[in-house]
Amino acid sequence: MKWIRKIVEKYGKKESGLIPILQDVQKIKGYLPEEGISDIAAELKIPIARVYSLATFYKAFRLIPRGRHSIHVCLGTACHVRGGAKIMDRLEQDLGVRSGETTQDGRFTVESVRCVGCCGLAPVVVIDDDFHGKLNQKKVIQVLKKYE
């Protein structure tokens, strides 16, 4: 792809420029698509596995697009005290992802935040723009059902 070649050339067509190249591609696409990774490898004449290795090493890179819905689990002090971490555990387990990742079906992206400013409702989970407070492990799974 032409636009990838341009980016690769911008960083001197060198393997040492791999990280900024990946960053640029992610900026444009929102994630690192498979063809993008193989094109970068082809342009740099390095194995695809090497690019993939780097792309999976850094948390900042995502290999699947962001989910349709974003889940922000608050782990600020108040929420933490009231079991925010447990909620995160439950979500990670149920959705089969770790914080920062997107589910395989592209439905959710799970992330953590530090205090969203409504500590009175702790523990809090923000899904898209909706705030859900006073949650527990059971309730949070119920809440997810609303989001397809």
Binding site: S38, P47, S53, T56
Partner: peptide, 20 residues
């Protein structure tokens, strides 16, 4: 010089394997 294998992910999730 085949580059089929590499390390992927990091920390306790590090695995050896092919791209994707």
């Amino acid at each position: 010089y085949n580059g089929t294998l590499n390390f992927h992910y990091r920390g306790d999730r590090t695995v050896v394997g092919t791209a994707f």
